[in-house]
Amino acid sequence: MKPDGILKRISDSNRDAPAMSHRASDETSPAFFYGIAIAAGAAASVTMFSRGGAGLLLGFAAGLAALAILRLWTVGILLLVIQGALFAGQPQRLIDHVSLLDLITAAGVMTLLVAGSRFLMIARGLSPIVNLSEATRRFLPGNLRASAEQEFTRHTADFGIAERSTAVLRIVLAVAGAALLLRVIPVDPGALDDAWLIPSGLRLISLAVLLLSIFLVTDLLIETVTWRSLSVREARVFLRSVLTVWCDRELRAVMYQEMKQRRNRR
């Protein structure tokens, strides 16, 4: 609150916008509390999932509604609930191919995640939900409340046709890529003899190595392409920092010596 009258002059809070930068974030402190609540709900859903029945559907629907309203950490919690349900409810089958039903299910989950993520980016424009969220936030102590400016959401409340079509492409690519990865790393029944590892353990290590390799190669490629576009200032900072890295010990020794001499002189 800005002070009025005579306090205007002596108060520091007259500054309009503090020059503190912030990371883009869709989380606020209430998300922590909501997260705990939803995790408890998810645990309950998982329990019901294992039994099956109408309770599962009801719990899932209620959870979804709560997630849609709360809009904080929604996508992550959603994925966590689904993963928990799959982990608890799916049987273990050592096979290296995925069925069409699995692909459709994965595509459905991905649609939910992509749509949920995009929904959160335009949620500021959907006033009833935002108002509800703000209303719950008002009951929290001030220091746990994050300002609305800290949220990085779009001002528009809709996506264009091109943006919607790219969402479909993303989902198809993601599911197809995942299926391909699983197919590329087959289950090796002789893993125990060859590598002294259980087949699923060997498969896990192979997958990790493959994923890491893909990431590193891609990163290297992009780094190589973008390195030449550094500005002169960036290049100077880089050179100076490399020089500092090389001579760090020597420079620090010299500095300590100088400080010691200065102290002795005093």
């Binding site: 994925l79 689904i82 993963q83 799959l86 982990f87 799916q90 049987p91 273990q92 089958r93 050592l94 096979i95 995925v98 699995d102 692909l103 299910t105 994965a106 989950v109 991905m110 995640l113 992509v114 993303r170 989902i171 690519l173 993601a174 599911v175 890529g177 995942a178 299926a179 990865l181 699983l182 699923s200 353990g201 498969r203 896990l204 997958l207 990790a208 994923l211 893909i214 990431f215 891609t218």
Partner: peptide, 24 residues
């Protein structure tokens, strides 16, 4: 990791789809 290690294909597929999506 859990899906592949536990031989739960659907869990592995869903989680890997998320990773591939993030990668793209």
């Amino acid at each position: 990791g859990l899906g592949v290690f536990n031989a739960q294909e659907l869990l592995a597929l869903v989680s890997l789809s998320v990773l591939v999506w993030l990668f793209f």
